[in-house]
Amino acid sequence: MTPRFLTPKELALLSLVQNELVPSYGDLPPAGTLGAALTVDAYLAEQPRLRRPVLTTLRAIEVRSGKTPFAELDAGRRVEVLRKVEDSDPESFSELVKQTYNAYYTRPDIQASLGIDGPPQPLGFELPAFDESRLSRVRAMGKLWRDD
């Protein structure tokens, strides 16, 4: 799919970064491989206030990667670059992380991996009714409020 806001190069970099932020887990692929970059691209297209921190962070990652592009760094070096970028501008970096989490944890397949079988409505949840006998100790405490 064609990104709506990011350039193809930015989208590819974001996807690689996301794979480090939320790596694979068991059978679950990492966030970038799952397509979280395109979802974040859609957020950026719709919410201009998110653009500056995300673009700032992507550019800082390119700069920190030095002469070797981020894509060609080994896993350890990628994490090192990301930590340095985070340390230098934690506010912008945290926005990129937040949007990655937004894209990842709103996926039904990821929710299913956490035991969630659907959104809160329309089914809700059946929970046990309150048992008044649990209050016997508190009832015996007597009046705890002050008269005026």
């Binding site: 932020l21 790596p23 887990y25 992380v97 937004n102 990842y104 944890y105 990821i110 969630i116």
Partner: peptide
Amino acid sequence: VGPLSVANGGILGHPVPWGSGHH
């Protein structure tokens, strides 16, 4: 709250760290 708000710190005030220990 649900998993997204937990991940982002939401009601906890502490986002879940990114990287190898995230899950």
